[in-house]
Amino acid sequence: MTSPRICATSSSASGQPDMAQESWPAPAVTPYRDAIAAALRRAGQMPGLATLLTLAGTVAFWEISVRLFAVPSYLLPAPSAILGTFGVIGWDRWATHVIATLRVALMGFGLSILIAIPLAVLMMRVQILSRTLYPLLVVIQSTPVVAIAPIIIVVLGAGDAPRIVITTLITFFPLVVATATGLAATPPELIELSRSLRAPGFREMTQIRLPFAVPYIFSALKISITLAVIGAVVAEFCAAEAGVGYFIQVSTSLFKLPQAWGGLLVLAAMSLALFQAVILVQRLLFPWSLPKSR
């Protein structure tokens, strides 16, 4: 009664079908080696699991090191200390901060899409604009936003407006450049086809150039969405009454480093989620624009 069960367990643990073992009797060590190899292979086939294991390992190493070497919390707080701070301020308060940052990041991101894509289209259509606007864009991009943020805040006053503008300033440059590149990267044959049909110019833009720019635009959107989170945080560092960046700043100003790290963790989670959301939108709306299967 018991022995077949043991048999079954051991064979499934080795990851080898019984048939294979019968037909190719192997040296005694191989089942273990195979078992490890199979486990690794299985872990490799489940990227989620592999990531989780790596993450868990890192966190465990971090916790043990901090405890073992008694690292003071102002240098590096232990993961357990960081997680412990989450309960301190209550979930509604967390939600307020996350929503505030998310609102600014998404509105700034949205505004930068609304500006960048028409601007790129305009630059594509009007050569002179392209030549005059590009240097201007580079100047705007290379201006440290942190330096001009106080001016923006004084000019635009309280509320979300200055933070949204700061976020937009940080996010829109890669979008303009990528969209302009994408619009110009259309197969020339299709442009000739369009010309030979004597189609109206706007349709060349809407039916050929813009759709062909979609993969470029989405590459830039993936960069911009993470920049949007950074932008919102930078803006909150300059002026805010709520938000994860503000939370981090308040926490650091009080030397509550574990609490500040908790905020960083939330920011990282937000960035990851938004990045995945952009990928999801691309997969749902433009599946053809994804890289071909590897």
Partner: peptide, 20 residues
């Protein structure tokens, strides 16, 4: 209502601008 600031200069410019 309380508006956090970022230093005295920031507070003074916001008061001067009338936002507080």
């Amino acid at each position: 209502t309380i508006v956090p600031g970022r230093g005295s200069t920031d507070a003074i410019s916001r008061l001067a601008a009338g936002s507080s």
